[in-house]
Design a protein around this nucleic acid. Structure first.
Length: 300
RNA sequence: GCCGAAGUAGCCAAGAUGGUCACGGCACUGGUCUGAAAAACCUGGGAUGUUGGUUCGAGUCCAACCUUCGGCA
C-alpha cells in the first residue's frame, strides 16, 4: 500500500520544520494542510516563513476573496499525493487544519458531494439561530432532535444541514473515491503552559516582520468581508484599522485568539485514533519522531 | 504629614433606598464538529482588602487598620 506521512498538531509546535527534516531524510515532498496558507498575500500572519528552497504544495493557491472548503482540499490534496507517489517520493501532509487531514484519512463522506448553495446561505445568514432551529426542525425533525447542544446553537452547522436537506436529489455526483494509504500520523503536542509563551513570542516576531504593513497592502485590494480575511492575525486588527480600538488591545486579543485556537486544535487531535503524539517539550522529541518514521518507512 | 477618592475572581466591571450565598465581558478549563474549520458553537470553576461594629439580615451603613490613586505640603 502506498505510504503517506502526516504531521499534525497545534499552532507553534514546529510542524513544518519537522516535516522538512523528514522530507530530506526520506525523499519526501510536502503538502500543506493549512486552511489559511492557501491564500496568496496572507504571508506573515499565517507563517509562510519557510525556507525558500523547499517546495510546499497547496500554499498560495487562491486569492483572499475566494472561498474554499474541505471538499476542494480533499480533491487537490489527493491529486498531489498521487503525483508525488508516482515520482517515487514520500508524500508528507503537514498542517494544523484537522478537518482537512481527516478528509484524507476517512475520505468517503457522502455529503462532500453536496455543494454550498450561496443563494440559500445569503438568506439563511440573516436568520436568527432560533429561526434556523425552527426551520431545520420543520424539515427534518428526527435529525434535529438528535443534535447536541453545541450543534443546535451553531448557525453555520444548522445552515449546512438545511442546505443538505434541501439539496437531496440535486447533487447526484458520487463522492470521490479515495484509496486508503499506509499512514503514519505523527502529531506534535505540548502542555499549553509550554505552548502559550511560544505563541506569544511568535506574535511579537510577526509584528516586527511587518504584519501591519502586510494588512495595509491586502486592504488595498480586498475587504474585511472577504473569506481570506477571516483569519487570526488579520481580523484581530480590523478595529485598529477602523480606529475603534488601540493597537495594544488588538495585539492582546490576537494573542488570546491564538491561545484558544491552539486549545481547539489540541481537543481535535486528542480524539483521533491511530495518532502518535510527540511532546515537543521533551528534549528527545526529534529523535522519537525520526525513529518512528524510520521504523514505519522500512516496513514494507 | 494633611485633605480627597477608591478597594468586588488574573484583568475590566454591574450591583437604586441594606434583603434570592453577587449581572456581564476578557482570560483560563473541558468539549462539539464531515463542502465556512485560523470558522462557527457548547460547557465549567473561581470574587466582595483586613478586623471589629450596627442590624433578623451588609458588597451596600459605621469605625479602625492596610493598600492604591489624585491633590496639598
Amino acid at each position: 500500500m502506498a505510504k503517506l506521512l502526516i504531521i499534525s498538531g497545534p499552532t507553534a509546535t514546529g510542524k513544518t520544520s519537522l516535516a522538512i527534516k523528514l522530507a530530506k531524510k526520506f525523499n519526501g515532498e510536502l503538502i500543506s494542510a493549512d486552511s489559511r496558507q492557501i491564500y496568496t498575500g496572507l504571508d506573515i500572519g499565517t507563517g509562510k516563513d519557510h525556507p525558500k528552497n523547499i517546495k510546499i504544495n497547496l500554499v498560495d493557491i487562491i486569492t483572499p476573496d475566494q472561498s474554499f472548503s474541505v471538499a476542494q482540499y480533499q480533491k487537490l490534496a489527493h491529486q498531489k499525493i498521487i503525483e508525488i507517489q508516482a515520482k517515487n517520493k514520500l508524500p508528507i501532509v503537514v498542517g494544523g487544519t484537522g478537518q482537512y487531514i481527516d478528509s484524507l484519512i476517512n475520505p468517503n463522506k457522502p455529503t462532500y458531494s453536496i455543494k454550498p448553495n450561496h443563494f440559500l446561505r445569503f438568506f439563511l445568514n440573516r436568520f436568527s439561530t432560533f429561526q434556523l432551529q425552527k426551520l431545520y426542525s420543520f424539515l427534518d425533525k428526527k435529525n434535529f432532535d438528535s443534535l447536541n447542544n453545541s450543534e443546535r446553537h451553531n448557525p453555520h452547522r444548522l445552515i449546512r444541514k438545511i442546505e443538505i436537506k434541501l439539496s437531496l436529489g440535486n447533487n447526484k455526483n458520487s463522492p470521490p473515491k479515495i484509496p486508503s494509504f499506509d499512514i503514519l500520523h505523527l502529531s506534535l503536542t505540548a502542555p499549553t503552559s509550554y505552548l502559550y509563551p511560544r505563541i506569544d513570542s511568535r506574535v511579537e516576531k510577526r509584528l516586527k516582520l511587518g504584519l501591519l504593513d502586510e494588512i495595509k497592502k491586502i486592504l488595498k485590494k480586498y475587504s474585511w468581508s472577504d473569506p481570506g480575511l477571516n483569519t487570526l492575525a488579520y481580523f484581530d486588527f480590523k478595529k485598529y484599522f477602523q480606529k475603534q480600538a488601540p493597537l495594544e488591545s488588538c495585539i492582546s486579543t490576537w494573542r488570546f485568539h491564538e491561545h484558544s485556537y491552539a486549545r481547539r486544535q489540541k481537543t481535535w487531535f486528542k480524539k483521533r485514533e491511530a495518532i502518535n503524539f510527540i511532546d515537543i517539550s521533551r528534549p528527545n522529541y526529534l529523535k522519537q519522531a525520526l525513529e518512528l518514521t524510520k521504523k514505519w518507512y522500512n516496513l514494507s
